[in-house]
Design a protein around this nucleic acid. Structure first.
Lengths: 318, 318
DNA sequence: ATCACTAATACTCAATCTGAGCATTAGTGT
DNA sequence: ACACTAATGCTCAGATTGAGTATTAGTGAT
């Protein structure tokens, strides 16, 4: 075992929940070294990865996961950081991490306090096209990105990923955007990995990074999860695994907007949703908003069937 | 190293090419133990999985791969078979395999002979809804599937996956269908794994299996690849990575039909394709067919941009 | 009570997209 | 010149979408 490196399989989970104000992810680790919940895979004890993920998330955080899906397996040398807290691994080992996304549903304040949750836009401010802050975050990055894009290949990648010209912003291209920022040296992780020999652009002078970093390649895993979730909303009814049991259509719309980081056209959103048959009205109403009371809906039986389709996202003019 | 099992990372590649008559996959192994090209990942020599995949496919088969994409990481205990030919692994090791799909483009007869290629419907006859043979293959399986579906949950899964009631056949649900057949004991692999302790239905009496098996869980990996490719056709212009450089619209349609296993409405296929801007006509014509000569097209610059959309599939009435 | 205010819900209209088919055209071989 | 075959053109109704304008049912303040 001296000549050959060992391979350690790590499992990372992006656990997403919807609180009142938007999508939040479960974090672990000490201040300054924040990351996703992470466990190492035990080839003897665990029969499948998915069981292992459910297992360690529940034991680390007390949450029982609902929907769980494998994201991607990350194995690039030089992008993972040795995880000191794992104990069992030495620097000589090669860590391969299998990323999972899990939906923990709608959580209440109590559960929220039980874990460390964070709005996912803390790590990706530019992904939120609803808020002024998000728009500004991107405007801050664009000049540097353009400066980096010296070849036409780079220019075209930037234009596509960020919806520059006629192309429009595709909310699910989270990973493409992050990778470009990484290659351009505009996120923290790039500097860390540059020190380890990755070929990456140096940061522009006096750079203030936009968006907080995460340990190892966890921000990349989170980007993958965001992209997957945003894409999947369109073709599978997974929003309902994040929404509370009963909701008004406006609440559902807010949730979808928060996940996708875009504004939708309200009337058209209702229309397609009601036609889709994915929701049905409970008789009950919900006042509290200061306007006309809204009907409370639930997901329908249809929405639970495998193969049920997702939501269409009628964008609102900006 | 006695108490803890070692983890071995295997890489499997589904290499797809389009010959004249449809999608073919590259195989390796001896008769009776046919599988996908498979290599083990060397944590020291290989910087990334993708490079490793390109490497071993090229060295095993001489093909340089074009488009490569990670599919899924398979790690269930009891579904992988120990791969005798690997030499380095012992029974005690846990093999985790990272599946990749690669598109080798359009190949000519010479290249075709250089490797062992097989029509992918040999392994999934029921996935071909174009041919009488495919329809009959499914009709053969359905009674047994229905017999297995004793709970409403199973019935609903079967109905959704195979498009039984009002639901329609979704060409990309290849994996769901295969998994149901596996659980129902209707494919070879189920018997093999049952012997290893998996909880699976016994085969119906005097069963003749429909579709050829592959080594280990390679048929599952192939199913994943087929599903991914079929789904991706709709939102990324990947057909062009399989089509020859110049093609008539009918040829392109044949290719898409072969990949998706369905028949499309010819006039509507042309219409959407021409509107999409993904193809442009070369001036040249193509006779050879005995009818009116067809215009030869190429993929356009638009189709090469990242973010370009895929094809819509206007189904033909059955 | 009445009024202003706020959200929710209803309705409208044109533009586009789709499914299905009928019709025409440009080659080939007789 | 004629039959045959595939490619290409054209049409039409129905469904879907984008973008509004118009009502309605609550709230709290005069």
């Amino acid at each position: 075992m001296s000549a050959t490196q060992r391979v350690i399989i790590g499992l990372s989970a992006v656990v997403v929940a919807a609180s009142g104000k938007g999508p939040e992810v479960l974090l672990s680790g000490a201040p300054g070294a924040i990351g996703l919940p992470f466990g190492s895979f035990d080839p003897i004890g665990h029969r499948t990865f998915e069981l292992a993920v459910r297992d360690f998330v529940t034991s680390q955080t007390g949450f029982a996961l609902g929907y769980v899906e494998q994201l991607y397996t990350f194995g690039d040398k030089g992008r993972e950081a040795p995880l000191a807290d794992m104990g069992q691994s030495s620097d000589a080992d090669r860590v391969v991490s299998v990323g999972y996304i899990a939906l923990a549903g709608s959580i209440d304040e109590g559960q929220r306090r039980a874990g460390v949750w964070a709005d996912w836009y803390r790590f990706f401010p530019w992904e939120d096209r609803r808020s002024e802050a998000g728009i500004r975050a991107l405007e801050l990055l664009l000049p540097d990105l353009k400066a980096w894009a010296t070849t036409t290949e780079r220019q075209s990648r930037v234009a596509m990923a960020f919806g520059l010209h006629s192309q429009s912003w595709q909310e699910s291209q989270v990973l493409d955007r992050f990778e470009l920022l990484y290659e351009a040296g505009l996120v923290h992780e790039a500097q860390r990995d540059r020190a380890k020999g990755q070929v990456l652009a140096a940061p522009p002078a006096e750079r203030t990074y936009v968006g907080e970093p995460l340990v190892s390649d966890h921000r990349r895993i989170l980007a993958t999860a965001m992209g997957r979730l945003r894409a999947k909303i369109r073709y599978r009814p997974i929003v309902f695994d994040l929404a509370p049991a009963r909701f008004t259509l406006s609440e559902l719309q807010d949730l979808v907007e928060a996940l996708c980081g875009v504004k939708l056209h309200k009337q058209n959103f209702r229309r397609t949703l009601e036609r889709s048959g994915l929701v049905e009205s409970t008789g009950a109403m919900h006042a509290e908003t200061g306007g006309r009371p809204a009907m409370l809906f639930t997901r329908s039986a249809v929405s639970r069937q495998a193969g049920a389709t997702g939501l269409s996202l009628p964008l609102a003019k900006r």
